[in-house]
Each structure stands twice: as structure tokens, then as C-alpha cells.
Simulated scan of single mutants.
Amino acid sequence: MHPSTVVVRSRRKGMLVNRFPALCSEPNGKVVANRFGRAQAWEMWTLECIGDKVALRSHHGKYLTAKKDGSVVATQSKARSWEKWTMENAPGSDGYIITFKSCHGKYLCADDGHFLNVGVGNVVRADRDARGEWEQWTLSTPDDVPLVRTDIISAVGAAGCAGALGTAGALALTPAVAGALGFTAQGITAGSAAAGMMSAAALAEGGGVAAGSTVATLQAVGATGAGALAGTALAGTICAAAIPVASTVGLVVWGGVVATRSFLDNPLKKKPPPGKWLLGTEEGVNNVLFYEFQDEPAAVRAFDDVKTARVLFNRKHEEVRSGGWNGESVKTIRNVAKGH
């Protein structure tokens, strides 16, 4: 696995599917975002940093291209201007939810699926001026460990400059990102970016890797292993119990259960001070509860998994998004959050 391999998922859900489709490049260069479930080879991309831009190279070795007419393909073998994208945080996001802006100033969009999201992502275009839900994406490792924009850029930059990241930057990387580079509990993976960084560092340092260096620090982070991620947001913390929906009857039962009980821990009756991500829910008439999260991925996962009326707030307690079938409940949550 290439160390900078990522999965790019749209924030548009499929019909009755609590999953988000992955961006996919077919062998003929057609690009879609309609593949659900665990990412396969065609849904994996190599993220490259080119100055302040990024490029996405498909499994077939072709770059994601935005044409002037807004169409998107993956047919070019070199990253020129049309293959370079500006990766931005989505409104209110810390960088877990992102957008891609083409050199033509338009945003990448997972289109189609206009009726009940049937056929979502059958068309991918870069022709939108706004950054709404259809233009929002997330990055993750091939194992679906969520990545924040600044972390993955640091990781790819570290690979590209063969160890010139600096110890302070390395310490900011999560074990998941260090592992993606090839720094693992079993050692440095042969053929990975980590191996290249180690070789470059050894040459620069006269045959060895100095204690406290970038490579040594990254290996220390990576050596914590996957076990250190257990129960954390980066391990894909799911704050709601999954109830299968296999039929219309199952959907009705499922909706009734989630409408009357909470799957989240440590509910708060009063909105806490800003500083952490916050999810507000109404669980019963006028029974508004708040849940705090250390980071955006955990908060977003909870928002996605809980099906009651809910409102997601960022660290500044600005509303990021709302959900649920009961609009009046959403209004109630907002009023309580405002102290009304």
C-alpha cells in the first residue's frame, strides 16, 4: 500500500444507507462517487502535494482532472493545471470535512440522485460555486480511519521531502497517519515512504538515524500500534448502536427505537462552554440533551449515526449542520442552545 493512499468519500448518503460513497475511477477514466462499503482498489487515490495544491492519482495511474465545462475525468498521466486542486475546510469544519476547488474556481460535486438520493454519485462534476453538502468530502485511510486535512498534508509532505518535516510536526501526527507512512509497531515497512525517509536521514546523518530526529519520532508514534487507537475517534468511534434496516418493517421499528432513547454516553442537560465539538439532540418532548466530543471526526460520526432530531456545533459552538425528520425538534434544540 502506497503511504499516501487515501479514500475520498462524499458526504451525500445513499437512500436508506447510513454510509457515504467513495470517489471511484474506472479503467476508462470515468469518475463516479457511488461505491458504498469498504473501499476497493478503484476507490483508492494517491494524494500528492504540489505547492499549495493537491493532486489525486487513481489506482490506474491517472490524475483527477477538472475540465472547463465542469466535467471530471481521470485520464491524464501528468499533473498539470487542470489536475491541481485547492483543498479547503468545509464551512465550520476543523478539516475533517473538506472541499476540492478546481483551477477554474469550481467545487467538486457528487451529483445525481436528486430523488431520495437514488443514484447518488453516478455523476461527478466540478461546476459548483457553493460548498454545500453535495460539494463536501472526507479523507480516510483504506481501512476507513478518518484523516484531518492538516494531518494528511503533513504526512504527504513528510513523504515528499524525505524527512524534512521536523520533530514538532511529526509529534502532531496521529498514530494512524504515522502508520500510513509505514512507521508501524513491527518496524519500518519495506518500500514505504518511511523506508525512504529513513534512508535519506541515514545518508544525511552519516549512516545512522539520530535519536530525537523526525524519523525516530515518527517511528515512536507509529510503534504505539493500532491498539492505541482502540476506543478513540481515529479508530472510527461509533457513538450509536447500529440497527440493521433490512426491510420497511425493520425501518419502522428502528425509527421508533431511536426516537425514544439515546445511544450516546454522558448526556448534559445544559450546553457547556465552547471548546469541544457538541451534538444537541431532543429525546422526548422538550428533553434537549448535549454531548461533548474531543474532535470533529467523533462528533460527525455521532451525528451520522443518531437518527433523532439533532444539531451539530463546532468548537466555537457555531451550528455546522442539522438533521432529523422533525423540524420543530431542531428548532427546539437551537432555542435551548441559544439559552432561550
Rank of each mutant, 00 (worst) to 15 (best):
P146F: 03
L147H: 02
L147W: 09
V148F: 07
V148I: 12
R149W: 09
R149E: 08
D151C: 07
D151V: 00
I152N: 03
I153P: 03
V156G: 04
V156N: 01
G157C: 07
A159P: 01
A159L: 03
C161N: 15
A164G: 09
A164C: 03
A164V: 00
A164I: 01
L165V: 01
G166T: 11
T167A: 14
A168S: 15
G169Q: 10
A170L: 09
A170R: 00
A172P: 03
A172R: 06
L173V: 00
L173P: 01
T174V: 05
P175Y: 00
G179Y: 07
G179M: 14
G179H: 08
A180L: 09
L181Y: 01
A185H: 10
G187P: 02
I188F: 08
I188H: 11
A190I: 01
A193F: 07
A193L: 04
A194R: 02
G196F: 08
M198P: 00
A200C: 11
A200F: 02
A201W: 08
L203E: 15
L203V: 11
A204K: 14
G207L: 03
G207K: 01
G208M: 12
V209R: 06
A210I: 02
A211H: 12
A211W: 08
G212I: 10
T217V: 09
L218A: 06
L218P: 07
Q219T: 09
V221S: 03
G222H: 00
A223R: 06
T224A: 10
T224N: 04
G225M: 05
G227Y: 02
L229S: 04
L229P: 00
A230S: 14
A235C: 12
A235Q: 11
A235N: 14
A235V: 06
G236A: 11
T237S: 14
T237Y: 10
I238T: 15
I238L: 14
I238N: 13
A240K: 08
A241C: 10
A241I: 11
A242W: 14
I243K: 08
I243M: 14
V245A: 14
V245R: 10
V245Y: 11
V245G: 13
A246E: 15
T248K: 13
T248A: 13
V249M: 07
V249L: 12
L251T: 12
V253Y: 15
V253F: 12
G255V: 03
G256M: 11
V258F: 09
T260L: 11
T260R: 14
T260A: 13
F263L: 09
L264F: 03
D265Q: 11
D265Y: 05
D265M: 08
N266Q: 12
N266D: 15
P267G: 04
K270F: 04
K270I: 01
K271C: 10
K271M: 09
K271G: 02
P272D: 10
P273H: 01
P273Y: 07
P273F: 04
P274E: 13
P274Q: 10
G275I: 02
W277Q: 02
T281L: 06
E282I: 02
E282H: 00
E282K: 00
E283K: 02
